[in-house]
Amino acid sequence: MSHRQDGILERRQLLPLVPSTERSACGPVAIIECVENIPCDPCVEACPKGAIRIEGDMNGTPSVDFDTCDGCGLCVSACPGLAIFVVDMSLDAGAATVSLPYEYTPLPSVGDTVVTLSREGKVLGEGTVKRVLQALALDRTPIVTLSVPADHAMDVRHFLAKDVTA
């Protein structure tokens, strides 16, 4: 099934969006899951390091120079497609963080345990909320950072507040 049938990117489409294992081990980095030629380019404008490029006019697809990107996350809330995530695999053995845009209420609090979801909305496991960014500059697109098992880092893209009654 193609991503234009079920809305899910295939493995082969994801591979070029992800940095090398060596780069990942160095620190946080942006992963941009935007693969179509749409008329859009605010991500390029948002990056203070000039790490995001779109070839040709704004209908090109964005790519990240993983050596220039320092994972600051400024592009995450600038993207109208909510398609940018920052993943940090440089942490202690087995752990990673995923920062994602979260335009829902209520916002979770630091320390909360949440149910992590994949690109298909399937339950992956649990995560812990490490940080909730909600500055005026983010214009109502808060960024939530979750701590997750390292082998989930490339799959966790959403979460559900954990239902305490369940």
Binding site: H3, R4, G7, L9, E120, R157
Partner: peptide, 17 residues
């Protein structure tokens, strides 16, 4: 057989299940 909107819009609701 394929949806007409942008994939990024589809992805937002897919990951919410």
């Amino acid at each position: 057989p394929e949806f007409g909107g942008y994939h990024v819009h589809a992805a937002k609701i897919r990951r919410a299940g």
